[in-house]
């Protein structure tokens, strides 16, 4: 894969290579954060100095279907030893699904000093770079987070309904079978309870995985992404866009690609996604 700087991205600064990370393992201004779907992976070996942020227990409210509050985020950042000036670099399994999800949640609290390691765990492992089971114990910091601000990057059900009524841009990043309504969950995954199958009317089907190179999980070049999103699916980077999947994890990945790699100016992630839309009474559905 070409150097990140040569791939034509709108905001290449949010993506760093495994080489960059390897060179910054001892940088006190960089905090590596591993976020995975598989809860065993971090404990089985992680990048030296990396801390673990679990998408359920660390980022989600323990009771309501929502994200942590300002107090919870402040406590999390204190635990991982980060200040407002710390550059947080996310990586993880599944071609960085959960890394992008964590990155997105961090944006709800305005921690813009954040990056994603291109290729995630898969590329690091394929390059046979060092993994360790030593768990770091960062010195707790005083992190005074602002109130969570959802407006810029998060879409709610009513926002999506307005987008449907306005015939605005929607991107369904689930598998083609989920989009078509022939299945209500990912292949090889359990059905997590959507009562109806199909997709949100007007949504374009662009499975998240089309944005990555499957052999190492790295993002495709801007030209390749433009071909997929703009040319093949007529998605306009200057128009408001909402991405969704099942619970907002795969669409975080697509949100990242649209927002930072292609420079979409107004793109939001609908984390309620199909588990909300497919269960809600009276909402329009297409098959």
């Amino acid at each position: 894969m070409t150097d990140i700087a040569a791939r034509g991205y709108a905001h290449p600064e949010v993506l760093v290579s495994t080489d960059w990370v390897a060179a910054h393992l001892d940088d006190p201004n960089v905090r590596l954060v591993e976020s995975n779907e598989d809860t065993l992976l971090y404990s089985s070996g992680h990048l030296p100095g990396a801390v673990h942020v679990d998408w359920t227990t660390d980022l989600n409210d323990p009771l309501r279907r929502d994200y942590i509050t300002r107090e919870g985020f402040s406590a999390l950042m204190s635990r991982i030893g980060a200040t407002r000036e710390t550059t947080v670099v996310f990586y993880g399994d599944k071609s960085n699904w959960w890394a992008c999800y964590a990155f997105w949640v961090f944006q709800l609290f305005g921690h813009t000093n954040a990056k994603v390691m291109d290729g995630g765990r898969l590329k690091w492992e394929k390059e046979k770079r060092t993994l360790t089971r030593d768990v770091p114990t960062p010195t707790p910091t005083k992190y005074d987070a602002p109130e969570r601000s959802d407006a810029a990057v998060r879409a709610f059900r009513d926002d999506v309904l307005k987008q449907v009524q306005a015939k605005g841009q929607l991107v369904d990043v689930r598998s083609p079978e989920e989009f078509a309504g022939t299945r209500m969950h990912m292949p090889d995954y359990p059905n997590e309870g959507a009562l109806r199958g199909g997709h949100i009317p007007g949504a374009k089907s662009v499975p998240w995985s089309r944005a990555v190179n499957p052999e190492d999980g790295t993002f495709k070049t801007a030209a390749e992404l433009t071909e997929i999103y703009a040319k093949a699916n007529q998605l306009d980077s200057t128009k408001p866009t909402i991405a969704y999947c099942r619970i907002g994890e795969r669409s975080s990945h697509s949100w990242f690609a649209l927002r930072y790699l292609l420079g979409f100016t107004d793109v939001k992630n609908y984390d309620g996604s199909w588990t909300e839309w497919g269960n809600s009474v009276g909402l329009p559905i297409e098959k």
Partner: peptide
Amino acid sequence: RHNISMGKGMG
């Protein structure tokens, strides 16, 4: 138990 993630249980 808690170490089962979404995709893993079925596998």
